[in-house]
């Protein structure tokens, strides 16, 4: 079979990438990685050519999985995250009969990086799942009442499966974008509960989108040498840094989560810098999201 030109160019890109990596003397990247990074940071840039406050190129593809109710593929530099949302019917929770469920799950398979081993999900995967669940709840991106079909009887369960295909740092940001984009892509069929039989009737011909009211976007930062903040760290930078912080903010500049699991203490000014960067990041991502949604409609 002939290789499609798109794939060939991708392959070419890969080769170019590995070439550029090998261009740096190996003793610097392997033996003294910290010194190597410091040299760049002193000049206010990073080994991959970015500035300190610059995100990697973000690419977004919505509706990549046709068998899911909603899906999206996000690339943040080399980091690749795919998210698929599947809707199922279930009885609503006993303590909230007028609500549905949203069940996020982050999977970090051994495929994406050598740091993950096969077996049950590790701490990082579990913490990421919890983080995503918290963001959904804190931001109230969609009303859970919208997922209820009939009070106390039937509601939707949205299983959001987020899988990392390539781990090159900063998966939380990519996960949130993937989740948001696939939520916007979800189309659920109309369901009625037949009063006589008590059974659910699904009308596959009539589908509707979810009402996404808030657009939370995450911005992650790594702290280098206890002082320098760098945005969107790669896997190498993550390994060398002394602390992380992830700020999730919606388009109304309300903070949804300020997630800083330990690490170097940060001053209030530094925290404010992170928040300001997160605000501009939200605008960038919303713009990208709208652009991709528009191009999908045009098709």
């Amino acid at each position: 079979m002939l290789r499609r030109p798109q794939r060939a160019s991708k392959l070419h890109q890969r080769v170019m990438n590995t070439n550029s990596l090998t261009q740096a003397p190996w003793h610097q990247t392997t033996v003294e990685p910290l010194e190597y990074h410091r040299k760049f940071l002193k000049e206010n840039c990073r080994p991959d050519g970015r500035e300190l406050g610059e995100f990697r190129t973000t690419t977004l593809n919505i509706g990549s999985i046709t068998t899911a109710d909603g899906s999206a593929l996000v690339k943040l530099g080399n980091t690749t995250i795919i998210c698929g949302i599947k809707g199922e019917l279930a009885a609503p929770p006993a303590d909230a009969p007028d609500k549905g469920y949203i069940v996020p799950n982050v999977d970090l398979p051994p495929l994406c990086s050598s740091r993950f081993r096969p077996g049950p999900p590790g701490e990082q995967a579990q913490a990421a799942s919890q983080f995503i669940a918290d963001v959904i709840e804190n931001s109230e991106m969609l009303q859970r009442e919208d997922l209820c079909i009939e009070k106390g009887k039937l509601s939707w369960v949205l299983y959001c499966d987020i899988i990392c295909l390539d781990y090159d740092g900063n998966i939380l940001d990519a996960c949130i974008i993937a989740l948001l984009a696939s939520m916007k892509n979800v189309q659920l069929p109309e369901v009625h509960v037949n009063e006589q039989t008590g059974l659910a009737e699904v009308n596959m011909k009539k589908k509707r989108h979810l009402n996404i009211v808030k657009h939370p976007v995450a911005a992650s930062f790594a702290v280098f040498d206890n002082s320098i903040l760098i945005v969107d760290p790669t896997s190498d930078e993550e390994n060398l840094s002394t602390g992380f912080i992830t700020v999730v903010i919606d388009e109304e500049e309300k903070l949804c989560t300020v997630h800083k699991p330990g690490g170097t203490p940060l001053s209030n000014e530094k925290l404010q810098d992170c928040i300001n960067r997160a605000i501009t990041r939200n605008k960038e991502v919303c713009k990208l999201l709208n652009k991709v949604m528009k191009s999908m409609k045009a098709k």
């Binding site: 931001s139 800083k260 203490p265 940060l266 209030n268």
Partner: peptide, 23 residues
């Protein structure tokens, strides 16, 4: 909060709030 500079070492939040409320 750390004991040397009294800065934020860890932050975990639930719910939505403004920047002013955060500070």
């Amino acid at each position: 909060i750390d004991s040397v500079e009294r800065q934020v070492m860890m932050s975990s939040t639930k719910g939505a709030f403004t920047t002013a409320e955060f500070h």
